[in-house]
Design a protein around this nucleic acid. Structure first.
Lengths: 363, 363
DNA sequence: TTATAAATTTAAACCGGTTCAATTTCTTTA
DNA sequence: TAAAGAAATTGAACCGGTTTAAATTTATAA
């Protein structure tokens, strides 16, 4: 159907090798023939077949991105960050959702490998799960970067500094005078939840508060989970905490809904802080105080690290761990601002060149 | 590095053609050799190179999906629907965001064509824009399906029935006793906004109300746009309408925020209805009444139509237009339910097999 | 046992690019 | 003007699969 390099060669009266030279502007082809061939390419609107090129070059210019659930705004923003760097470098990205199922993760990784993607960015299913396939990637020296730690796997890693973000949020609550502060946990499999718990604990301890076991409330990551946690709190015999730090904004939202349904006022009765800074969080009737993750930047940096590794001649360079700064967005739900003022602080537009990484560990 | 078909052939003591036969289980290869070769493939964990296969077969098993902005939950859900059908059929999807920029749409389509994707699902930039590239796709007989009409382009189309959805929403408001009902428009380039406006108008007219020009308020599609529209309403000399039907949930959210900041109560002073049923909408302090789009199903069906067209021997079958039913999710923001009851109706899990399309036009 | 038909297997061409050693053409210099 | 050297071009092999006509093996019938 469409033209091939042979067609162009014939039309230009040169060999395929020469056309190839023109396409990859090799210095050995003369200006004269270059312009002539280019004119013919232009005239017939010839575009080289990327599949054939990939086969010859043994690289596709495609990377794979596997997340748990692209409909989570955090992950979709990460995906956009990944894409942005990729388009700048003429890479394409094949996307997939694992739905937090290890077997899906496995099968999708295998499919991507069959498709010869040049590298992988993975938000892996974590903890308590067979990770043979990740170990295999490592053994095969397949380039990949993780968006969350996986115990026992050494690889490049890019994520937010959860512990510090959590610390700052809880510290802020304490400075506002809150004392009985609870943590609404994320899913048990998420290491990010553990780290946020650590930050929460550290903030309490450094402020001479006791991190009581009863204040750590198991939950999940979705709106419904937060809602149910709120119902449980309402029905609990224990007095309700005066502040709740939540695993993420979805949980916070569901929680607030359940609390206010039960006539418990946010923030007067209980302050609530989320995590992620979802797009809607600043526009809620009670705008949500939250820890903003640089989601777009996480994706951008992850892609950067991946492409670096793909292009590295010696792919023996040490693995990087990049922890990006979060920042606390103070709004109404923690009681700092008076309700009823224009206070939805928007996400600052990320400026990649200016942002410094927190620390870069080396293994 | 990894094994090729030749390696396997050598190991099994057969020709490459035979191994190929085994892989594609051709009936001509005998059971005996098939099991023998299979054992060797298994033993060495050989997986055929999809790129080489794609080159030989002239089909990649990859489709492209281009949306405006994957971080919009509507589009990410559509993307998940697309993906679901694709994994079932061993297709992969390359995703891209156009950011509503025609030039990005053009360049990404071209890149995808170079990558020899078997087909395209497009949420195109619409209205008032050069559409030469879409016209070209059509001319080249490249399989693609649209998620929104493009004037002058004939192609398969899958989308929600906006007009009817809008009609039902506004009709419901009228039945609740609201009379001065406004429409907060989407972006000017979106045909969906036009159709929702039509549904809004029809509902007014069929209920003997006059669709006043001053009640149609230009806006956009994002939270900020809705917020600004709310500010403008507050500052306007005209009396505030007693109900507002919004282009989407984001706009509704921003709007509600602006209204309540100005001590205008939702729903007592003004009822608000959104569109899309974003995940958070049911968990807001004032849960949002909204028109749910079957986003997942839209993606699923679009992928179905596309793969059908890809596999059609004669790709001269008539174009389909599939309009999927929306459904009105009544919550608190329109004043029907008493505030403070558990009323967040969740998205029903889509059941693809049961859902019937609204109508299927043929060209 | 042999001729013939049926079932298997294989060699070779092909998909559309890239690469590099070998060849041809162009410059330079003696 | 011829020889040497530099610049440009090209033929052929290769990437890792699929396909098909031809060759080989096996089965069946005479």
């Amino acid at each position: 159907m469409s033209l091939t390099i042979s067609d162009i060669a014939k039309l230009a009266g040169v060999s395929r090798a020469t056309v190839s030279g023109v396409l990859n502007n090799s210095p050995t082809v003369s200006e004269r023939t270059k312009t002539r061939v280019l004119a013919i390419i232009e005239k017939h609107n010839y575009r080289p077949n990327a599949i054939a090129r990939a086969l010859a070059l043994k690289q596709t210019g495609v990377i794979g991105l596997l997340v748990k659930d692209i409909s989570n705004p955090l992950y979709s923003q990460i995906a956009m960050g990944v894409e942005e760097l990729c388009v700048d470098n003429n890479y394409s990205v094949i996307m997939g959702n694992t739905n937090t199922l290890p077997e899906r993760e496995l099968s999708k990784i295998n499919l991507l490998k069959r498709r010869q993607v040049d590298g992988l960015i993975l938000l892996p299913v974590q903890k308590g799960v067979d990770l043979g396939h990740l170990w295999e990637l490592h053994k095969e020296n397949y380039p990949f970067v993780l968006l969350a730690e996986v115990p026992g796997i050494q690889a490049d890693l890019v994520r937010a500094d959860d512990e510090k973000g959590a610390f700052e949020a809880v510290d802020h609550l304490i400075n506002l005078g809150r004392r009985r502060i609870g943590y609404i946990c994320g899913p048990e499999t998420a290491m990010a939840s553990d780290r946020r718990l650590e930050g929460y604990r550290r903030a309490l301890i450094e402020n001479n508060l006791v991190p009581g076991k009863d204040l750590v409330i198991p939950c999940g990551w979705r709106l419904e989970h937060g809602y149910e946690a709120g119902l449980r709190l309402r029905e609990s015999d224990n007095p309700i905490p005066d502040a709740l730090f939540c695993y993420n904004d979805s949980v916070a939202l569901g929680l607030i809904r359940a609390l206010t349904e039960g006539q418990i006022d946010v923030p007067d009765d209980v302050a609530v802080v989320g995590f992620d800074d979802a797009p809607t969080s600043g526009f809620l009737e009670t705008a949500l105080t939250t820890v903003a993750q640089p989601a777009h930047l996480i994706g951008y940096r992850a892609a950067q690290v991946l492409l670096d590794r793909i292009h590295a001649k010696n792919n023996s360079s040490p693995f990087q761990s990049i922890f990006l700064e979060t920042h606390l967005v103070v709004r109404e739900s923690c009681g700092a601002n008076r309700k009823g003022t224009v206070s939805h602080q928007l996400n600052p537009k990320p400026d990649h060149d200016l942002i410094k990484t927190n620390r870069e560990d080396q293994f």
